[in-house]
């Protein structure tokens, strides 16, 4: 773009403003890696716990959730590694970061609460939080799979209360599949495609 000062009509000005605003719409940073990290991590934990509880009858099946501290360390590592790499900061990326930080602290607070009251119905509360986060994130970036995944979490959270503990583990796995894993992969594919188009 040259710096044309002459022969620059009001119509051209308006067109330029619109096109620049449109350009930034596609500049939201690709954060699908976090959905995939937590999605696959929790799905593995669900599968391990189900196997230990329903098949092996192992009373220590809760050990499967020791994966969480590992995921937290990986998350911190990724955040530091990617910090400062984004060439642009948008208000949406800030809002998303605040949202997931708040949800992260809510998960932690709930872990303390359930450690005291018992883990019997914990999955419903976790599923509601997953759903809320993905729904709001999806609305921020206008990405339908995240929005749909978030909505599906609500009936799954309710259903989890009406089934036995083993099935509850499977419902938790299903909720993470629809709210994190599938939208995460679709989001990643979308960004990859966009990069290809930009090249």
């Amino acid at each position: 773009m040259k710096n044309q000062e002459n022969e620059f009509s009001p119509e051209q000005s308006l067109k330029l403003i619109t096109s620049m605003i449109e350009t930034t719409k596609n500049s939201i940073c690709d954060n699908s890696i976090y959905f995939l990290l937590w999605g696959w991590g929790i799905l593995i934990a669900c599968a391990v716990q189900y196997y230990m509880k329903a098949i092996l009858n192992n009373p220590n099946n809760g050990m499967a959730w020791l994966i969480i501290p590992v995921l937290v360390v990986l998350q911190i590592f990724l955040v530091f590694k990617r910090r400062g790499k984004a060439k642009v900061k948008t208000f949406i990326s800030d809002a998303s970061a605040y949202l997931w930080t708040a949800i992260g602290f809510a998960y932690l607070a709930m872990a303390f609460i359930f450690a005291k009251t018992g883990w019997e119905y914990c999955s419903s509360f976790y599923i509601i939080l997953y759903g809320m986060g993905t729904f709001v994130s999806g609305q921020f970036i206008k990405f339908r799979p995240l929005i749909i995944g978030g909505i599906i979490c609500l009936p799954l959270a309710i259903a989890a209360v009406y089934v036995d503990f083993d099935s509850r583990i499977l419902i938790l796995g299903l909720s993470i599949l629809v709210s994190y894993i599938i939208p995460g992969h679709l989001l990643r594919a979308k960004y990859k495609k966009q990069n290809l188009v930009n090249v």
């Binding site: 330029l16 620049m20 605003i21 948008t90």
Partner: peptide, 9 residues
């Protein structure tokens, strides 16, 4: 126009 729609670039 670009800077108006982002926080910083």
């Amino acid at each position: 126009s670009l800077l108006l729609s982002v926080k910083e670039a």
